[in-house]
């Protein structure tokens, strides 16, 4: 029995996936603390306890995410671009474009038919178009980030935000709240602004079908729908697993490949 794991330490959340023969047996998502090594361990311990396993049972563990170099228990580390590609292609073999929105960055990744990375583009310079944008807006509205998605679905007349900059958009949102616009309309406007910014990045690379979204923001239906509408493209929903786990899933799949190559220590 070969059991492998993937651990993805992001800016806001640490994720772990444990697999046995390309089948997911346990997953965990925990909030990242200031130390990536501790966040990684917390996520991994939670997944291990779910699977009733210990670290000794894991043959190969691949680390990924911005804190990947700091994870003590991994066998090797792989870039999150490759891991998101790997994970998405595993769940949707026809996928060619992946939009991954994390807590503090946004990536658009293109794959060929075999799932190899063709090219990618990243924004980690500007908070707009990243999970951080939604975080800031949710805080202003005094609701949770997940509510931002849910509430927007019943909007009748979404507000328009004049600027993509998080700072200016925040001032705009406050103005609309003070003008007593319905919360649903404000939420929807925020999601559209977010989608507009992401579409700029996506258009810079050019998208090819099929398209899917990964990362925590993929759980916000308001952003996903707005993005599909703005780009005039269908975005395939990932149903088999929480899209936030995609990097960790890809990492686990890389770990699995390593054991197949006979790289595993017996």
């Amino acid at each position: 029995m070969t059991i492998v794991a993937g651990c993805d330490v992001g800016s806001l959340a640490a994720k772990a996936v444990i697999m046995e023969r390309r089948r997911v047996v346990a997953t965990a998502i925990v909030r990242s603390g200031p130390k990536p090594a501790e966040s990684a361990k917390k996520a991994m311990d939670e997944a291990l306890s779910q699977a009733k396993l210990t670290m000794n049972d894991i043959t190969w563990c691949v680390g990924t995410g911005y804190g990947r170099e700091k994870i003590p228990f991994v066998t090797e580390s792989v870039s999150e671009i490759s891991c998101h590609g790997k994970g998405a292609q595993f769940l949707i073999p026809s996928v060619r474009s992946i939009i991954d929105i994390g807590g503090q960055d946004c990536k658009v990744i293109k794959l060929d038919a075999k799932g190899n990375l063709v090219k990618f583009i990243t924004n980690d310079k500007c908070a707009s178009g990243t999970g951080r944008f939604l975080d800031v807006m949710a805080k202003v509205m005094n609701i949770s980030v997940s509510e931002l998605g849910e509430r927007s679905l019943i909007a009748k007349n979404p507000i328009t935000l004049a600027s993509i900059c998080t700072v200016w958009a925040q001032a705009d949102v406050i103005k609309h709240i003070n003008a007593r616009r319905p919360a649903a309309d404000v939420c929807a406007g925020i999601n559209v602004a977010m989608a507009n910014r992401v579409s700029m990045l996506a258009n810079a690379l050019g998208l090819e079908n099929d398209i899917c979204m990964t990362g925590g923001v993929a759980k916000n239906k308001g952003v996903v729908h707005a993005l599909g509408r703005i780009m005039g493209k269908r975005i395939k929903e990932i149903r088999q697993i929480d899209p936030q786990l995609m990097g960790a899933l890809g990492a686990a799949l890389f770990a699995h490949e390593q054991t197949k190559k006979g790289g595993a220590q017996s």
Binding site: P34, Q104, K125, C126, A127, R132, V136, T166, V167
Partner: peptide, 14 residues
């Protein structure tokens, strides 16, 4: 390292 107001503010906090 960040020029973005939002990201620079996080750096200031740390």
């Amino acid at each position: 390292s960040n020029q973005c107001v939002i990201f620079a503010e996080t750096e200031v906090v740390s």
